[in-house]
Structures are given as structure tokens and as C-alpha cells.
Design a protein around this nucleic acid. Structure first.
Lengths: 256, 256
DNA sequence: GATAGTCCCTCACGCCACGTAAGGGTCAAG
DNA sequence: CTTGACCCTTACGTGGCGTGAGGGACTATC
């Protein structure tokens, strides 16, 4: 059990903020003493973490409450989701850095930089005019026109489909990485559901079936090339090898 | 000269915001027509960029105005400064990601995570008491222990090195993606510096030299495998093909 | 040259997420 | 039993806009 000040210091918010969150029913203490003191436990700390992550993403408090109190709310699922959004923000910052660099270069050298380029990465994607378009594209109508547009550039997938595909890939990888961390053996059948999703994903991206041997070959290819290794090692230490082993074992079972 | 709406769309702010900035004297139009219309020029766009960067860092508008209007203010100098702060923020996001990952792991596995660890990266460093400690840790002593920890897992790269490698890869990719957006031809020699960095990176990861043919082969491999295509298309539409072309052309020049 | 559609303007009130006192209990250490 | 750091509630203030309302201005088309 922690007092307001303890929680405030840990979480980097003010005491007033905790009072406020209590007042609006967003975060109530686990316990209130007869003296009126607020005491917070582990669960409240976790909830506060969620609140702060959401807040960081610019979501209004009322909405955060609605999300967290939704009966269908799954903490794990939400975290995975928020992780992706945070990663997006991180990317935005990376682009801001590049924009600043280019602006610096221009101030020094006077090379041409288009006006709108001044803001790449600084623009909050939520506020960009295309955002609603994007949402509509992703969930609603207007798909027809969109497909036409994206076919202009041959071979490329529509953005929405690509985003969905990346999400799926990420989810599968996270699942497998977790399995590794949990000590699940790569060769066992415990990961088969995830591996099947992975294989299906590959097949979708190839736009043709991915039989067992091809899948096993892919595993070898992963290990042989640094970009893959780097990418998977970034997810978790030792993950590249784990993934390759799991894929080959699964392929073997498919063939068997 | 741009109207309010044009500027608003470029910069990702609302028209109301521009009105507001005008009202408080933070950003005045270059010109106001007899009809009262506001018109903004290049200088104002640059100033707005500065404003938004500062705002992103949580600096109040009044203070931003004071900073920008300070007679000793040097745009270049300020940009360099802000760059550093943005980079710091980016680091914070990276740590948030790690915190989230650890929380995910804990929710699944119930392994111990100290209460205060729930907030590492989420805490705004300005508010955290340990901020100075953190700086000391980062640049000062205590480095030895860190290195020891990361070498615990043999064979794998130390985390720090991996992070640096990923940064380098990202930088190169971003640079090439930008070149593509700028209309630079993939086969021309304009990207050679970046491509050499890329080849050197591959070689470092392989831990053996990467001759021209191997590099060209890698390009083919990129195109042949969905994970790569997906990853590069996520960076920018058409980038997978662009990168492959550039790599092969560069390999050709190396050989020739 | 009328009509419609899209832009632009100036008030002016409202709102969210707290900040900031004011006034007063509580608790652990010395 | 006092001191000082903590806790409480109540209440008003503030920053950075959002969101109309009401009304001109410009462009295109019929």
C-alpha cells in the first residue's frame, strides 16, 4: 500500500492529479483510511500505468475511463495495442529528427526544401486531413477508389492491407517471443497455432501457397541474413534462432 | 504566400490555432489583405515549425514566444538544441516500449517486477527525482556493470551494440527512403555514400566481408521474401523495389 | 448576374486537465 | 508535546485551444 505522494513520485505525476483522477472516478484508491487518507495497491499502480500510457497518446481522460472499464477490456490485448501506437509515436519522433536535420542543412546551405516538408514528422497524424480518409479507407467505404489508387504503383499492397498485415505479423512475433521468454521449447507443439498463423501470413504475402519445405527454407534464410537476425534480435535476445528452430520443427510436423 | 487553411493543413494544426497564435502575438501573418485575410510566407512557416517543436516538448506558448523573440536567439543554434531534446524524448519512448514489454511479460507470467519499474520511461524525466542520477548513470560511471549484464547471454550481441546497429540501419533506410521521395534515381550514384554504409553494416552483422556479388544477391533475396518486402513497404510505398535496384546498381559499380 | 460552394473574418462562450492557494486535520520523530 | 512533513477538502484560476454564431469574400457554373 502506497500513499499519494509515493505513487505520485513513482509515476511522475502530481498529487493533485491523483486527487483529480479519484474525483472523476478514473482511479480510486484501493483503500481509504478512517482519516480519509488514500492508499493504493498494486492493481491501482497497473491501472495508473495504463492511464498514463493512454494519456501520453493524447486520449481524453473520459475516454480512457471508458476504455479501461469496458467489460471486454483485456489488459494484455490493450498493452499490445498501445505498444504499437507508442512505436508509431517513436517513429514520428525519428522523423522529426530528420526534419530538423534537413532544416538545419537548409539554414546552412540554402538548398531547396519544399514548404510542406518543413513539417514531416511534426504533424500529428491524427490531425492531418487525411486521417479521416485513412479511417474510412481502413474500415469503411471508398475502398474501390483506394484500390485503384494503390494499383497505380504496381505490385504494392494498399496501405490499409499493409498495415493490417504488419499488425498481424507483429502479433505473431510477440506471441512467439513471449513463448520463448516463458521457456516454451521451440520444437514442441505448443506454438503450433502461432506458427500456423505465421505460415498463413507468409502465404498471403507471397500470394501463393507456402508448403512445408518452403517454410523450412524460409527459416534457414532468416538465419543466413543479417537484416532478419537484427530485426528478430531486436524483439528479444536469442529470438532469431528460436524462431528458426520453431519454424523448422513445425514444417517437419506438417510434412510428417 | 499561403492562406490560413493551406498553412493549417501543411503544419497539421487547426485554423483556430493560427488565429490564436496571431491573437497572442506568437505568430503574425507576413501580410494581411485589405479584406482581413491572413497570408503567411516562408519565414512564418519556419517560425511555426519552431513553435510546434517547442510545443511538442511541452513548453508553454508564452515561453516559446519569449525564446523565439529573444534578440540573442539563433535559429540554427536553437534547432541543434531542440534536436537533442527531441532525441531524448525518443529515447524515453524507447524505454516506454521496454516497460510495456516487461509488463506484458509479467501479466502473462507473473514474474516479479518492482512497483517503480512499472513507470520507467513513462515518467516524464523532468518530473522524476532520479533524473540527475539517471544522467550520471548514462554518461558517468556504472558503465562497467551494464556491460557485464549484457554479456550474460553469450554469442548474442550486447544490447547496446544491437541498439546502435538498429539505429544505424534505420538511419540508412530513412536516408534512402528520403532519396526516393525526393525523386533521386535508384541507379544513379547519388546514394553511394548511404549504400556503402549499408553494405558495411551488413558486413558487420555477418561478421565477414560482404563482396559485391553477395550484396547484389542480398538485394534479390529482399525482393523474394515477404517479410522484407513488408518491412520496407511499411517504410515507404515502393521502397522495397527502390532499395533492391539501388543495391544492385551499387554492386555493379563496385565490381565494374 | 444570380446562385452555390468554399473559403475568410471577428466575437464570444465553453471545456478539459489540472495548478494553486486557503484552511485545517494527522502522524512519526525527537 | 512540539515540530515538520504529510494528508484532506473546497474552490477559484488558467492555458490552449474547440465550437458555434453571424456575416463578408472569392470562384465557378449555370
Amino acid at each position: 500500500m502506497h500513499t499519494v505522494k509515493q505513487v505520485a513520485q513513482m509515476a511522475g505525476v502530481s498529487v493533485r492529479t491523483l486527487h483529480h483522477y479519484d474525483a472523476i472516478g478514473l482511479l480510486s484508491p484501493a483503500h481509504v483510511g478512517t482519516n480519509g487518507y488514500r492508499y493504493y495497491g498494486r492493481d491501482e499502480l497497473l491501472r495508473l500505468q495504463q492511464i498514463l500510457i493512454h494519456r501520453e497518446l493524447g486520449i481524453p481522460l473520459a475516454e480512457i475511463g471508458a476504455i479501461l472499464d469496458d467489460p471486454g477490456f483485456d489488459r494484455l490485448d490493450a498493452l499490445v495495442h498501445q505498444r504499437a501506437r507508442i512505436a508509431q509515436q517513436a517513429d514520428r519522433y525519428a522523423e522529426m529528427l530528420r526534419t530538423i536535420d534537413r532544416t538545419i542543412a537548409e539554414l546552412k546551405g540554402d538548398r531547396g526544401m519544399k514548404d510542406e516538408d518543413l513539417y514531416s514528422g511534426i504533424v500529428d497524424p491524427r490531425k492531418q486531413a487525411e486521417y479521416e480518409d485513412w479511417l474510412a479507407k481502413r474500415y469503411g467505404p471508398g475502398v474501390a477508389r483506394q484500390i485503384e489508387e494503390s494499383k497505380a504503383r504496381a505490385g504494392a499492397l494498399p496501405e490499409a492491407e499493409m498495415a493490417a498485415a504488419m499488425d498481424e505479423l507483429k502479433a505473431v512475433e510477440q506471441g512467439l517471443a513471449q513463448a520463448m521468454k516463458d521457456g516454451t521449447a521451440p520444437e514442441g507443439g505448443a506454438n503450433d497455432a502461432l506458427l500456423e498463423r505465421h505460415r498463413a501470413w507468409v502465404s498471403r504475402m507471397w500470394d501463393r501457397p507456402c508448403p512445408a519445405e518452403a517454410y523450412a527454407g524460409l527459416a534457414d534464410m532468416y538465419l543466413a541474413h543479417p537484416d532478419f537476425v537484427a530485426r528478430y534480435e531486436a524483439i528479444a535476445e536469442g529470438f532469431a534462432e528460436y524462431l528458426a528452430k520453431a519454424m523448422k520443427a513445425y514444417a517437419g510436423r506438417l510434412d510428417g
